[in-house]
């Protein structure tokens, strides 16, 4: 029964090739975008952590993004 399903009445190769291509290309794009996001998120966190506490608080007070990134850092710590 599984073999029948995979064969798809003789069209299996075309169907699985299409779905395989879509799955692979979408997965590659997703993981590439995720990796870039994490890379910049960490780089920004590190830049913030390099600042002294006074400057960091000042930036956190003025920037919602910095505040959010710092709060997520506290959660992970």
């Amino acid at each position: 029964m599984i073999l029948e399903f995979l064969k798809m009445n003789g069209y299996g190769i075309y169907i699985w090739l299409s779905y395989g291509f879509v799955f692979l290309s979408c997965s590659i794009v997703y993981f590439k975008v995720l990796r870039t996001l994490k890379k910049y998120e960490n780089a920004y966190k590190n830049e913030l952590m390099k600042l002294d506490a006074k400057d960091r608080d000042k930036i956190a007070k003025n920037s919602k993004v910095a505040r959010y990134v710092l709060s997520s850092l506290k959660e992970t710590v």
């Binding site: 995720l34 996001l37 910049y40 920004y44």
Partner: peptide
């Protein structure tokens, strides 16, 4: 994908400003 890329762009901008 759009939102993840947009979030990356925001962080890039903030990092540049920093």
């Amino acid at each position: 994908i759009f939102l993840m890329k947009y979030k990356t762009e925001i962080i890039k901008m903030k990092k540049k400003n920093l």
